[in-house]
Amino acid sequence: MSSDSPNRASLDWSTASDADVLQAMRSGQTDALSALYERYSRIVYALALRLLTDPQEAEDLTHEVFLSIWQRNLYNPDRGSLSSFLMMMTRSRAIDKLRSRGSKGRFLQRWKGLVRSDSGSPSPLEQLSIDERSQRVHEALAQIPDTERQVLEIAYFEGLSQSEIADRLNMPLGTVKSRSRQGLTKLRSLLQNAL
């Protein structure tokens, strides 16, 4: 073992910080890439599958996202967590793929603008580990009425307009609008209070 690659000798991938794993990856250690994959591939794939709905496309996108992290130094830790970055990249590229598929123009028009950058320092939520963050979000979502959560999730993951959601759920447009707004306002409040 050469003395200039201490990470290779000493890093416990299961407990190493994202920063340490990334640094090891930059020195060419594919073990580090494996460690990142082990840590985040399930949530990246879940999001890709939810958005693209096609397992093969979701697999290809997951591959693309992790390979991009390997090939390019795209992530800046000063601006947020690695998990957030991976989720944003997954979402952004999934939307690109949907656009190229040409079947969800409305989705793209509605949500493309929301794939955006964080402008400041990482938020308190950003600073949690992915497990902690998922736990907080699950707890918050559990406190939101199913009716509000349902319209929020349809809007977010499927990009349907309010009127399209109203048609699908057979409910008045005003109800869809108020439920989605109330749901998001509650979610925001619950997440803030949980920190």
């Binding site: 591939s41 399930r42 989720m87 979000v137 977010y156 979610l187 925001r188």
Partner: peptide, 15 residues
């Protein structure tokens, strides 16, 4: 951020 947090409400799926 709250809206984007819906991503974290998904059940994880193994690739």
């Amino acid at each position: 951020e709250a809206l984007d947090s819906l991503c974290y409400g998904l059940a994880e799926v193994a690739p």
